[in-house]
C-alpha cells in the first residue's frame, strides 16, 4: 500500500475539510494533486477498502434503528441470513459464534416502520427476533487508528 493510500485511510477518517474543495485541501496537505487524491480514493472504494467518503450519523438521532439477534439452527442459517439481508432497512448482518448466531442492524425512518420490519422478519423466518436497541452511547468516535505491519 502506498504512502498516499495509507495517509488517506488513516488521517482523514474525521475532520474532513469542510471547504467547497475538500479533496484539493487534502491534496495540499499531502503535497499531491487533487486528481491523485480523487483517483486514489476511487480506487480504494473499488477495492472495497473504503466504503465511502462521507458522513457517519449518530444512531437514533435520525430515524430509528436497532441491533437485533436471532438463534438460527445451523442448517438454516444461510437461508435465513439471505431473507434478513434482503431488506433494504438492514445495513449490517453478521454470523457470530454464539447460540444467538445471527446479528443484524435495521434502520428505518421511524419506530413504526422499524417494528414492522422486525415483526415481518420474525414471521417469515419463524424464529424469534431479539431487539436490542441502543440505550446509551459511551464511545467517542474518532475513527480507527490503523497500524501497518
Amino acid at each position: 500500500m502506498s504512502v498516499l493510500e495509507r495517509r488517506l485511510l488513516n488521517d482523514f477518517q474525521h475532520d474532513l475539510p469542510l471547504s467547497a474543495t475538500p479533496y484539493a485541501d487534502i491534496a495540499a496537505r499531502l503535497g499531491v494533486s487533487e486528481e491523485e487524491v480523487i483517483e486514489t480514493l476511487q480506487r480504494l472504494i473499488e477495492q472495497g477498502v473504503v466504503s465511502r467518503v462521507g458522513a457517519v450519523f449518530k444512531p437514533n438521532r435520525i430515524g430509528a434503528s436497532t441491533l437485533a439477534a436471532m438463534a438460527v439452527p445451523e442448517e438454516e442459517l444461510e437461508q435465513i441470513a439471505a431473507i434478513v439481508s434482503g431488506y433494504d432497512e438492514v445495513n449490517h448482518n453478521y454470523e457470530r459464534e454464539h447460540r444467538f448466531n445471527l446479528w443484524f442492524v435495521a434502520t428505518a425512518p421511524d419506530e413504526t416502520r422499524l417494528l414492522a420490519v422486525l415483526n415481518e422478519i420474525e414471521t417469515r423466518c419463524g424464529i424469534e427476533v431479539l431487539p436490542l436497541p441502543l440505550v446509551k452511547d459511551y464511545h467517542i468516535d474518532l475513527g480507527f487508528e490503523l497500524k501497518w505491519s
Binding site: 477518517q13 473504503v50 467518503v53 458522513a55 449518530k58 490503523l146
Partner: peptide
C-alpha cells in the same frame, strides 16, 4: 453549495453527524 455546507456544519455541531471523513472497512484492511 453554501446551503449544503451550512446544513452539514450545523448537523455536526448539533451532534446528528458523528464525523465526516473516509469510512474504512476494517476487514479489507487486514
Amino acid at each position: 453549495e453554501t446551503e449544503v455546507m451550512q446544513r452539514l456544519l450545523r448537523m455536526q455541531e448539533q451532534d446528528y453527524i458523528k464525523r465526516m471523513g473516509v469510512v474504512v472497512r476494517h476487514h479489507e484492511l487486514g
